[in-house]
Design a binder for these strands. Structure first.
Lengths: 123, 123
DNA sequence: GATCCCCCTTACGAAAAGGTAAGTACCGCA
DNA sequence: TGCGGTACTTACCTTTTCGTAAGGGGGATC
């Protein structure tokens, strides 16, 4: 199921290694969502990331789990219950992305770019 | 020649808008290289980014120019001379990427990931 | 005269990323 | 009995991204 091989070649620098784990259409948002809510279930994430497909969501979550960013806790219940949360590394990564988010907000403002309505998290 | 359409849909948040301009195999490194040397010619960049093809380099530079990150100055000489440098926005973006770079360096260390030899810029 | 350097452009193709749709197995509710 | 909810998996297809290879037009160098 793994769509992203664990990286073919070596990394070039820290930014390269940092960008690698967040490159993915929804990863930044997953990080932000898990940081603000601390614990989220699969369906909650799916509703929060409007437009994401179930396939992409599970794929991204698995990759982020493999990268040590999110923790996945499965309850042996029926119906199934799975809870996602950030690991310590995921939390520090989210903090490291703070300045980039601020820069991005500036960019949105100064270029008058379109932003999805409903939610405009200031993250 | 534009390989990346200026973004189909709206942005979700600042991180989304920030990641959009740096997603590209060599963009982080171009940013870093232009920040440390302030002015670089095409061939200099090509040598610095070992492994990049000319096509990708020009493509990335054009996209970053369109995004207002780099400034492209062409001298009407022969042989042609073109100098690239960071704009103000490119510079602030690079600063905003600092924490991510530090996080990435931590990741490289703690996971013992492979890094390209020769150059290990601490950026 | 041949080759190299400069800064690209173009064409072609492979690989990766992402989207769509359906199926799984079980349960509660009406 | 049928539908919706839980958390996925699988197959198939399109789009995007990246790489390879070649050309181009002039000048300098050997």
């Amino acid at each position: 199921m793994r769509a992203k091989s664990p990286r073919s070649g070596p990394y070039i620098c820290g930014i390269d290694a940092g960008l690698d784990v967040v490159s993915g259409k929804w990863k930044g948002l997953i990080l932000w969502e898990l940081d603000t809510h601390s614990v989220r279930r699969f369906a909650e994430l799916r509703r929060a990331l409007s437009g994401v497909s179930e396939k992409m969501l599970t794929q991204h979550l698995r990759e982020m789990e493999a990268d040590g960013l999110v923790h996945r806790k499965v309850y042996a219940e029926v119906p199934p219950r799975v809870e996602y949360s950030l690991t310590e590394h995921g939390h520090t990564l989210n903090e490291a992305l703070g300045p980039l988010g601020a820069w991005g907000n500036d960019r949105l403002r100064r270029e008058g770019l379109e932003v999805t309505p409903a939610e405009i998290p200031q993250g």
